[in-house]
Simulated scan of single mutants.
Amino acid sequence: MDRNDSFREFVAAHQQSLMRTAYLLTGDAHQAEDLLQSVLLKVLRRWSRLSDVERPDAYARRALVNQQISWRRRRVRAEFPTAEPPDRPYSSEDSTLVRLVMRRALMGLPPRQRAVIVLRYYEDRTERETAELMNCSIGTVKSQTHYALARLRELAPGLAPRLAVSETEETYR
C-alpha cells in the first residue's frame, strides 16, 4: 500500500468525525469544510511521518483546534444581531430550540473556550485528552471550562439549568 492509499483510508475512516468537530468549532458548514480541507492538506504533507503514529486522528483534531484559533485571531470580529428572546420558556421537548440557542451561545465564546466546550462535552474528551489536543495544561482546561460555562450562562440564561449539571459533572470527572 502506498502513501496515498493509506491517507485515503485515514480520510475515509475519520472524515465524518473530523467534519463534526470542525463544524462545532466554526458554527458554519462552509467554514467547517474550509477548515477541514486546510487541515487535511497539512496532514497529507506530513503523512509519511504520521502514518506510523499510533493515532493520526488525534494529530488532525489538534490541528483543527489550532487552525480555528489561528483563523479567529486574524478574522475581523463581526457582531451578530439577535432577535428578541422567545416568549415561551425553554422546554426539554423542544430540543431544536435548545440546539439553536446553544449553537448561538457557543459562537459567542472566544475560540479557546469554544474549543474546550466542544472537546469536553461534544467530543466527550477527558481533561487530559483536551489538554493534549489544545497543547495546554489540565489546569488551563479546567479554568477555560469554568469561564466558558459561566459565559454560556450569561449568553443563554434559559440553558443555565442544563449547564449547572455539566459543571457538577466536571467537578467529579
Results as ranks from 00 to 15, higher is better:
E93N: 13
D57E: 13
E132S: 09
M107R: 14
R74A: 10
R74C: 07
P110I: 02
D52H: 06
S95L: 08
P157T: 03
Q67M: 11
F80M: 13
I117G: 06
E132L: 03
R104F: 07
V65F: 04
R103E: 15
A156G: 15
E132G: 11
Y59T: 10
Q67S: 13
A160H: 00
I69E: 15
P85Q: 00
R88W: 02
R104N: 15
Y121S: 09
G108T: 02
P89W: 05
R61C: 12
Y90L: 15
Q67D: 12
V101L: 07
D87M: 09
E154I: 04
D52F: 00
G108I: 04
Q113H: 13
L159A: 13
Y147C: 07
E93A: 14
A115M: 04
V141H: 01
L50D: 13
A148D: 13
P81K: 06
H146Q: 10
V76K: 08
Y122S: 11
R128V: 11
R128I: 14
A63F: 01
R128K: 10
Y122E: 10
S92W: 02
P110H: 00
R99F: 11
T140K: 01
R61F: 07
W47Q: 12
R74K: 09
Y122K: 06
F80I: 15
R88S: 12
A105I: 03
P81S: 10
A58K: 04
V76F: 11
P111G: 03
V116R: 00
G139Q: 11
Y59S: 09
L133K: 02
W71Q: 14
V98D: 05
T130G: 04
P161S: 03
G108D: 01
Q67K: 12
R46S: 15
D124V: 09
S143R: 10
S91C: 05
T96W: 05
R62C: 04
Y59C: 07
D87S: 12
A148H: 07
R49Y: 11
A156R: 02
L119N: 06
P86I: 06
T96D: 12
A115Y: 03
T130V: 03
P85A: 03
P81G: 09
Y122I: 03
S51D: 11
C136G: 08
G139H: 10
R72G: 15
R61L: 14
E93M: 13
P111H: 04
T126N: 01
I69W: 05
S70I: 03
A78R: 07
V101F: 00
L155C: 05
R62I: 00
Q113C: 12
P86T: 07
T82C: 09
Y59K: 05
R72Q: 15
E129S: 11
S92V: 11
R77T: 15
R153Q: 06
I117P: 13
R75M: 14
S70A: 06
R74T: 07
R61D: 05
S92E: 14
V141N: 02
Y147P: 04
A148K: 04
N66V: 07
R55I: 10
S143A: 02
P111I: 00
